[in-house]
Design a protein around this nucleic acid. Structure first.
Lengths: 107, 107
DNA sequence: GACGTATATTAGTTTACTCTAATATTATTA
DNA sequence: TAATAATATTAGAGTAAACTAATATACGTC
């Protein structure tokens, strides 16, 4: 009941941020190391790291270590579909130009 | 690109709040007047009204006036599915007890 | 073990949200 | 048109989120 709602709200909140959404769209179905995400999102390393750790807390992301690099990826691929669906419903023009490209969430 | 992301983030943010999520789950597929939502959510009239107007701004809700009552409902029913999907992915136990009831998002 | 690279953490400031309480608006009825 | 009911708006205080800059940790190499 209320627990479910609070839980769902928390996950949604974790996704409901431009930078975090950009991270998720950049990741899509692949795994990327932090540095790559820093480059692609254009914000600071510290900032990205904080967003990543927040999403890891919420079980949205999982990590894999390789030497001194840490690779992040989206735990459940359904999340990607869910974001796409959200775009289709509420940001239609964007969704169209997006599904047109096919493979990636980002041009 | 970034516009799409900002737009999606904004909609998500509008949903990512316990009270607003509760409103959405209470509404589900029916339309309800403000007073009913006040009763069912257990917060103040002012508070509900502010949350409702926020979600109306974002095109999540639409309204219909009947005398001095205003009925709210979810514009796109897909949103309900989307919230359910989110629950299934991230709040599994809750999702199970929810789909078991069948008709409504709330017990 | 010193150094370099990749990532994480902390502290502090600024900005944005959220709630409450009071007031305003709109419509209905007497 | 006064009074009431339903809903909306505003203002202000408290709280949380977000960013930046500086520092810390972990790993690998020399």
């Amino acid at each position: 009941m209320n627990d479910e709602i609070d839980c769902t709200a928390e996950v949604l909140k974790a996704i409901a941020h431009p930078t975090r959404l950009k991270i998720l769209c950049t990741l899509n179905l692949q795994e990327l190391q932090v540095g790559t995400l820093v480059d692609k999102t254009g914000t600071t390393q510290s900032n990205i790291s904080q967003h990543l750790s927040l999403m890891k807390e919420c079980k949205i992301l999982i990590t894999r270590r390789e030497a001194n690099r840490i690779y992040y990826r989206i735990r459940d691929p359904k999340l990607v579909e869910l974001i796409l669906l959200m775009r289709e419903i509420y940001c239609k023009k964007a969704a169209l130009s997006c599904t047109a490209t096919g493979s990636s969430l980002l041009p």
